[in-house]
Structures are given as C-alpha cells and as structure tokens.
Computed example of a mutant assay.
Amino acid sequence: MMKTLYILRHAKSSWKFEGLSDQDRPLNKRGREDAQLMGQELASRGLKPDLILASPAVRALTTATLVGKELGYQPEDIVLDERVYAAGIKDLMEVVQETPKDVQSLLLVGHNEGISDFANELSPENLARLPTAGIVALQFDCDNWTEISRDNADFLFFDFPKNYK
C-alpha cells in the first residue's frame, strides 16, 4: 500500500482590513486566483485526494475550498483541525498520523513556517520555502499514516503559481 500526502501552503492573504484578527484574514484577489489555478493544475494531473484537511483560519479554509472545488469537493467535505493553525512539525505530524488508515491520499492546507518545515522534514529532496499556494506531493511506502517518514518517502512534485505566469 502507498499513502500520498499533498502539502499546500494557503494562498496570498489580504492585509487590507486592519481590524481583523490573524485567523480572520481573507485571501486577496491574487490569492483567490492562485488557489483556483492550483486546483485546476491538480485536477489536470487527475488528482483527487480522499481527504482535504485544513486550518480553520479564513485564508487556509478559503484556499482549501477553492482548490477543492476544482477537484470536485463540496465545502462541507473539508475537515478543519484547529491544530494546523500555527502548527510546527510535531503538531502537523500528529495531525497527519491520526488520518484514518483507509484514506490513501490527503491534502493538508496550512501556514508557514510550519508547513514548509513539515514538507522539508518528510521530503527526500531539499525544498525551498513553500511560496503562497505552493504544493509538495510525497508518496510513502507504508500501510498506515503512523508509518510515514523521510525514509519511506518518494518525492513526486513541487508546484506553485509562478510556474504558470
């Protein structure tokens, strides 16, 4: 069995609304366009993760929703996990390792710096810091999410919006 993990940093957020909390910041216009673009690119590869799991922060949830829409997901099918917001490597590993065994592919939508650090922790390839709406795909030779590690990982791809502009 194999497990496939797609690690996605949320798209570009807006700083226009000064009174908003960090969790409530929305995507800006470019962010909405980039999230849709990356969803289209994933769809063109024929990818449809079994589960989309995201931070509940507005910018991460909106990114997950826009990407998910391109992959045929309904917004209510996206699972939110508070631990993904402001998470480090250990937190993200815990969240992913709790994924049910029957889920073969998972799209995780989170925030930097944690999401980039997590991708680099698991990837056999050295990765740059994930740009907004950047996605890394890794495949693991294991039966259970508790077994994922760099030692059983294969790097599939690293993609981001500027590849298409």
Rank of each mutant, 00 (worst) to 15 (best):
22 D>M: 03
22 D>H: 04
22 D>Q: 03
24 D>W: 00
24 D>C: 03
24 D>E: 12
26 P>A: 01
27 L>N: 08
27 L>M: 05
28 N>M: 01
28 N>K: 04
29 K>L: 07
29 K>N: 11
30 R>H: 13
30 R>K: 15
30 R>N: 11
31 G>A: 11
31 G>K: 10
31 G>N: 08
31 G>S: 09
32 R>F: 10
32 R>A: 15
32 R>N: 09
32 R>Q: 15
34 D>F: 05
34 D>V: 08
34 D>N: 13
34 D>H: 06
34 D>Y: 05
35 A>W: 13
36 Q>P: 00
37 L>F: 07
38 M>E: 10
38 M>F: 01
38 M>Y: 10
39 G>M: 03
41 E>T: 08
41 E>F: 08
41 E>G: 06
42 L>D: 03
42 L>V: 04
42 L>H: 09
43 A>Y: 04
43 A>G: 03
43 A>K: 11
44 S>Y: 12
44 S>D: 14
44 S>A: 15
49 P>A: 07
50 D>P: 14
51 L>W: 07
51 L>C: 00
51 L>Q: 11
52 I>T: 03
53 L>P: 12
53 L>A: 01
53 L>Y: 11
53 L>V: 15
53 L>R: 05
54 A>H: 09
55 S>I: 10
55 S>D: 10
55 S>F: 09
56 P>C: 11
56 P>L: 13
57 A>T: 14
57 A>V: 04
57 A>Q: 12
58 V>Q: 09
58 V>Y: 07
58 V>A: 12
60 A>G: 14
61 L>K: 12
61 L>N: 03
61 L>H: 05
62 T>I: 02
62 T>H: 08
63 T>K: 06
63 T>I: 05
65 T>D: 04
67 V>C: 06
67 V>D: 05
67 V>E: 05
68 G>N: 06
68 G>L: 10
68 G>E: 09
69 K>P: 00
69 K>D: 07
69 K>V: 02
70 E>T: 02
71 L>G: 01
71 L>T: 01
71 L>H: 02
72 G>N: 05
74 Q>N: 03
75 P>H: 11
75 P>W: 13
75 P>M: 13
75 P>C: 13
76 E>V: 01
77 D>Q: 10
77 D>I: 00
78 I>M: 03
79 V>D: 05
79 V>G: 01
79 V>L: 12
80 L>K: 13
80 L>N: 04
80 L>F: 00
81 D>Q: 15
82 E>N: 10
83 R>L: 10
83 R>Y: 07
83 R>D: 15
83 R>V: 14
83 R>E: 13
84 V>A: 00
84 V>D: 00
85 Y>P: 02
85 Y>T: 11
86 A>G: 09
86 A>Q: 07
87 A>P: 03
88 G>E: 09
88 G>Q: 04
88 G>W: 00
89 I>W: 01
89 I>V: 15
90 K>T: 15
90 K>C: 02
92 L>M: 14
93 M>C: 08
93 M>L: 15
93 M>N: 13
95 V>I: 15
